[in-house]
Nucleic acid binder design. Structure first.
Ligand SMILES: [Mn+2]
Ligand SMILES: [Mn+2]
Ligand SMILES: [Zn+2]
Ligand SMILES: [Zn+2]
Lengths: 140, 140
DNA sequence: CATTAAATTGAGACATAGTCGCATTAAAAG
DNA sequence: CTTTTAATGCGACTATGTCTCAATTTAATG
């Protein structure tokens, strides 16, 4: 069904549904958790794919635009994404010691943000909340 | 008083309070709003300072650590900072069309985040919330 | 199926942000 | 003033991402 969504998106944009784009989507769909473009590219290469780095980087914005993936963090100078799939939107807590990532979702938080946007006459499209600190294990 | 704080920080760390570090702090203190390291460096160069790019980049983490500046955004692959000075902590809404940045602060939001951290046994140190969308003018 | 126009691709050059090693210089302690 | 230690500038280097362009693929049309 993700492929269908992508196909439709690509069609409405007058773009072509190519084998390479499909391969990239495939690899992302079978990836659990967060990923970054470079790592994705290397993984595909390792598996024998003939895809190029440029194509990986060029496909990511398309998948973002049609809502199949989201940017979740931008740390250490590079972007990280995750597939949206059945997952509902969530934000992240990141442990500065061990790197553990805790995903959380709070309807109250989302609501509050809507209110804050309204107050500023701002039309919020998306947001990114990262809480940095120490996980339970590392706080000790 | 900022210089004093920096001086103390530097002392406790066994570092030296050099003229260059002082110059960089100076330039930041006279900067209104957000800045990025590259722009700061160019500005200092233009004003005739002999400071090097490396020193600017090396001083920023020190100022972060002692709480004189904060990282506020990481967009377009590069980091942006702002001085903390009298300003209270706040988060940002960023217009994806005109680039306008709206600063806001909500005690409720801060409180809620504390609760969420507690629920996850997470010790939150700092956070970064960016809401992307369209400002009042650009929503029209 | 063949033709064709438009989009996509890979390769590698290029860009940008930031980091690092090392010889030289400056700070501060005695 | 001397000594020790840290900081500096320079430029090379790294990492992440973007761009150009010739060659290829797609998909629409006949
Ligand atoms: Mn996630
Ligand atoms: Mn701000
Ligand atoms: Zn941890
Ligand atoms: Zn705007």
């Amino acid at each position: 069904m993700e492929r269908q969504k992508f196909k439709e998106y690509v069609a409405t944009k007058g773009l072509k549904l190519t084998k390479k784009r499909d391969d990239i989507l495939d690899e992302i769909l079978t990836t659990e958790g967060h990923f970054d473009p470079e790592e994705l590219f290397i993984r595909m290469k390792t598996k024998g794919s003939k895809v190029s780095r440029a194509s990986v980087y060029r496909t990511i914005p398309l998948l973002l635009e049609c809502g199949l993936i989201e940017e979740v963090e931008r740390i250490d100078k590079h972007a990280h994404y995750e597939k949206v799939l059945g997952k509902q939107h969530h934000d992240h807590m990141i442990c500065m010691k061990c790197g553990k990532v805790i995903e959380f979702f709070s309807p109250t938080l989302e609501m509050l943000q809507s209110e804050l946007c309204q107050k500023e006459s701002f039309t919020g499209i998306r947001h990114n909340l990262e809480i940095l600190g120490y996980c339970g294990r590392c706080s000790k």
